[in-house]
């Protein structure tokens, strides 16, 4: 728990990030910030998808499937946003210390989840078409 709280404190106290290593070329820092913003947009798009699913998708043949998809998209969007901050802080730290950028399985995981969600929806649509 202390580890999680410390991590959250580090996200907000950006001065702490700046105490290690040397300041990189500010253009790299700005590029890191833009990458963060691109992830936030991805998260916001997922949240928008969740909100749109709940409002504009007619009820699906499987009970509550629409609500499940909607909440799953909303949670996925929130997760992407939180991970974006963590990723930003780690990348900033790695650049300051001259280390390799942190590797991540998250993009692959997100792609698989979105793919599975799309397959699920196709099945739901086909089930209704043949009913």
């Amino acid at each position: 728990m202390a580890g999680v709280l410390g991590m959250i404190r580090r996200w907000f106290d950006t001065e702490e990030v700046r105490r290690v290593g040397t300041t990189p070329d500010y253009r790299f820092s700005l590029a890191n910030e833009r990458t963060f913003l691109a992830w936030i947009r991805t998260g916001l798009a997922l949240v928008a998808g969740g909100l749109a699913t709940a409002q504009f998708l007619p009820p699906l043949p499987i009970a509550h499937l629409r609500e499940v998809i909607s909440v799953a998209l909303l949670l996925l969007g929130g997760l992407v946003a939180v991970r974006a901050v963590d990723r930003w802080a780690r990348t900033e730290r790695a650049m300051r210390l001259g280390r390799d950028l942190p590797a991540s399985r998250f993009p692959a995981l997100l792609a698989i989840l979105v793919g599975l969600g799309a397959v699920l929806l196709v099945v739901a649509v086909l089930v209704r078409a043949f009913q």
């Binding site: 959250i8 950006t14 700046r18 998260g43 949670l75």
Partner: peptide, 18 residues
């Protein structure tokens, strides 16, 4: 020079929409 608390605040508000 740095973004200050802008980035975590932005992510927090996104989670708020979730």
């Amino acid at each position: 020079a740095g973004p200050g608390p802008a980035l975590p605040l932005f992510a927090l508000l996104t989670v708020g929409y979730t």
